[in-house]
């Protein structure tokens, strides 16, 4: 089977972002960027399917600035067979609806049996692209997966829900979005990083697809969250209980 894995280049999860004083957004100049952690998990799962002989080909796709090419090279170094880069206007973060429409076009051209993507990107925290893509394609979806078992023509997926776990079965082709505990992604080895430079990477532009990517949500302002007032240190458990009872009145 063929597996498609959308990956996103985002600000590294260890970076504490700064909000620009003029309210125009987060300051991304000279900030370390990496592959979205949930997408690494998606890619790892696809590569494991290939290693077990279930998948024949793993295709990584990314949409965004030309620098997303680096993210795709990482994907190729981890084990993806080839990559597709769709370059879009880097002046704004494409919305999940636009991304889902572009991915729909890719899915129709490539006809994968399975699409595995991260449950959310850690920059816009939307948690929407996989579900939107499933809706546009009319495919079933299994979101927040912590376990994936492929059987003849179906995927059995255990999902992480608020009240515990749920197992569902979806007919292929389907879309699975990954939760944190699905797997532990591997690191790319140096020889594989070198080999990845020779793997095919097809480049296209969003305009090639005739998809309207105009944002539906106009960003009016981005601001810092309200700060908390400085707290106090207490020396003993007794002092803590006293503060919680008398000052805060919460117990």
């Amino acid at each position: 089977m063929k597996v498609l894995v959308p990956v996103k280049r985002v600000i590294d999860y260890n970076v504490k972002i700064r909000v620009r004083a003029d309210g125009s957004g987060a300051d991304l100049t000279n900030v370390k960027m990496s592959m979205n952690p949930f997408d690494e998990i998606a890619l790892e799962e696809a590569i494991r399917l290939k290693e077990r002989g279930i998948a024949q080909e793993v295709i990584a796709v990314s949409i965004g600035a030309p620098q997303a090419q680096e993210t795709l090279r990482t994907a190729l170094a981890m084990g993806a067979d080839r990559a597709i880069l769709i370059v879009a206007d880097p002046s704004f973060d494409l919305e999940p609806l636009a991304v889902a429409k572009l991915l729909k076009a890719v899915a129709e051209a490539e006809a994968p049996d399975l699409i595995i993507t991260g449950k959310q990107a850690i920059d816009n925290d939307m948690n929407a692209t996989g579900q939107m893509l499933a809706g546009l394609l009319g495919w079933p979806q299994a979101s927040f997966a912590s376990k994936l078992v492929l059987r003849e023509g179906t995927a059995e997926v255990t999902r992480e829900l608020d009240g515990g776990l749920q197992t569902i079965s979806v007919a292929l082709p389907a879309i699975v979005t990954t939760d944190l505990r699905l797997n532990e992604p591997r690191y790319a080895s140096l020889p594989n990083i070198m080999k990845a430079k020779k793997k095919p990477l097809t480049q296209m532009t969003a305009a090639d697809f005739g998809v309207d990517v105009t944002p539906r949500l106009e960003i009016v302002m981005t601001r810092e969250p309200a700060g908390r007032k400085a707290g106090v240190r207490v020396a003993t458990v007794d002092a803590l209980i006293e503060k919680l009872r008398q000052e805060a009145g919460v117990i």
Partner: peptide, 20 residues
């Protein structure tokens, strides 16, 4: 988690964005 599963799919069916 239910709404995060359902609402983006709904939004796509309606050709609108979701605001999570």
């Amino acid at each position: 988690t239910t709404a995060k599963d359902v609402m983006p799919r709904l939004a796509a069916l309606l050709d609108v964005m979701v605001v999570p």
